[in-house]
Design a protein around this nucleic acid. Structure first.
Lengths: 219, 219
DNA sequence: GCAAAAGTGTTAGACATACACCCATGC
DNA sequence: GCATGGGTGTATGTCTAACACTTTTGC
């Protein structure tokens, strides 16, 4: 999210209320930014360096009238952040919503990050590392693809996250061996080549595998 | 640690000072309990359920005179805990030290846990799960074994953590293939069987592998 | 019919698993 | 010499990685 009146961007975030878990608070943040409920999220790290936060950005926002000066005291406290990554199907989010201190909220490729406030670059790096690691232990896709999808689409997802090419035929075999896909018997028509089979996740089996994890040497 | 005047045990823990990272605070806890510095530690999860803590134990300790009644207000706050696991060479810790609210502090097998306060059983379960997972991605042993050790000793460590038997010959081959062991050319004499080779870790390579991680299908 | 991309199958090599044999030590 | 357990080697099957061929679709 781009902060108002600044050239600095920030990750979406928020505070944990006294009667909330961190997960509930993260859910709220996700809902407010995407208008979507029940997004898959994973806690991955706590950031506790006392020097990681300061009130510099806040002071600037107060000067510009974005925040009231009475908030300065609060923001001069010491903050820790619990890092979560979340998986959202990009196309489901019509327009990511900014909050009141930000000018706009939008999707940005990890290969094209702008300048970020505080330690948010580090948080993104760590989240991405963890996501890549988790890819080898848990299925993904249920949260990142439409209800129905094709094998090439699923593969594109993996290739995007891992940032590498995967052999089409080996990918297919591995995915099918996980036994979490249902062949809908439909085909995705429309392009001038063989129409790929349309799959959907077997949700019961999907969650079961997600729970147990595997230890695949995928790709 | 067994709490004074109660049949309930607790994990070692403490508070994070305003100018400390969580890691520094954990280091202090570890130093105070074990008298050892620079223990390997790994953050694994934050526990934030608002209902996870309550002041019941504290009230009891106040009634028994262990804590002053003025501390009650503080302990009626809402607390979150950042879970760390740490790896310590058991034999290096002559006598684990209790703190002022506990009667004794001692090593307890994970197979023989007593009744624990609050959600500490869950914390232990999660820590153990994470440790087992990490075992497949990072070397351990530098923190859990004496400077010099034998292959059977290293194997016993793995078998203890994973709680399963490993084939002696396959274990040896895998460990040697990681290329983090130095053959000291010594042998551990003393028992009425072939004397095993004494190894030590190649610390440079060890830390390198620890950093990079691997993705071994170990055992 | 042709181009493009998906589905199916195969094969060589790497790795995991299981086990057999020999060797060194203390008594 | 014998019991015990460590060091070395090898066979078998399974899985990964690389690649060839066939099929289906739109134009």
């Amino acid at each position: 999210m781009k902060l108002k009146s600044m050239d600095t961007w920030a990750l979406p975030g928020g505070f944990i209320e006294l009667n909330q878990t961190a997960e509930e608070a993260a859910d709220e943040v996700l809902k407010n930014r995407t208008t979507i409920d029940n997004i898959y999220q994973q806690q991955f790290q706590v950031f506790t360096d006392p020097k990681r936060t300061n009130a510099e950005h806040i002071k600037h926002l107060i000067n510009k009238g974005v925040l009231e000066s009475s908030t300065l005291d609060w923001f001069e406290n010491r903050f820790i952040s619990i890092g979560f990554y979340a998986l959202v199907e990009y196309s489901k989010v019509n327009k990511p919503q900014p909050d009141f201190i930000s000018e706009k909220c939008q999707w940005i490729s990890i290969n094209d990050l702008p300048q970020l406030m505080l330690d948010h670059s580090i948080i993104i790096r760590d989240a991405y590392q963890r996501l890549k690691k988790d890819l080898y232990e848990k299925p993904i896709g249920l949260n990142l693809l439409p209800e129905k999808f094709t094998m090439p689409e699923l593969q594109a997802l993996y290739e995007t996250i891992l940032q590498k090419k995967i052999d089409r035929r080996n990918f297919r075999r591995k995915m099918l061996s996980l036994d979490i896909l249902i062949d809908t018997k439909e085909k995705r028509m429309g392009s001038s080549n063989r129409a790929p089979i349309v799959y959907q996740f077997d949700k019961k089996k999907y969650y079961q595998v997600l729970e147990e994890g595997y230890h695949a040497n995928l790709f």
